[in-house]
Design a protein around this nucleic acid. Sequence first.
DNA 1: ACCGGGATGTTCT
DNA 2: GAACATCCCGGTG
Length: 193
Amino acid sequence: MARPRDLARSFYKRDSRVVGPELLNKVLVHGRRRARLVEVEAYVGGIDPGSHAYRGQTPRNAVMFGPAGHLYVYFTYGMHWCANAVCGELGEGTAVLLRAGEPLAGLDEMHAARPGAKGIERDLCRGPARLCQALGIDGTLNGVDLVAPGGVRIVDDGVPPPVGPGASVRIGLSAGADLPWRWYVPDNRYVSR
DNA sequence: ACCGGGATGTTCT
DNA sequence: GAACATCCCGGTG
């Protein structure tokens, strides 16, 4: 089984389109709450018109251009938070959006944080903003080290990524809508839409 | 089941 | 002023 340290190396100096599918079946951890990642999307600096990093660094996306293995959290539609794992080299601006997860632990806290799910486990983490709401991830966690103990982490509990991940275009974009950089665990009921 | 629209405010043109 | 890496609710079939 890989240790957290090995996971940190896997983000570093590697493209989000490579790291993305490898993050499937890894576990997102915040306090007692844990969710297995079943759906992700890659965003790439410079070449990707769908990425926040496409037009260069701004105050909002600064974390994307920082060191790999950190959490980029952004606010959208006036009410939702979404979270990414930063990859690649310093200054590159490439990251993996965490789109959905299967709840594993701390379900009581997730339900309390997500009244909109109406007690339905399937709806706790199915969608990028739902996942953040369920895990208690918001702007105060923007930039945190994903491998340091105590905060938000992504850990490997020994379940390998799917050998043949599902793939599709990304969801909810206008620019870059044709790029097939979404991956998911096939036939998993916690994948969105 | 599917579809349409409202919420809500930050970011960038 | 428009767009936005979304979600929720209420309508209809």
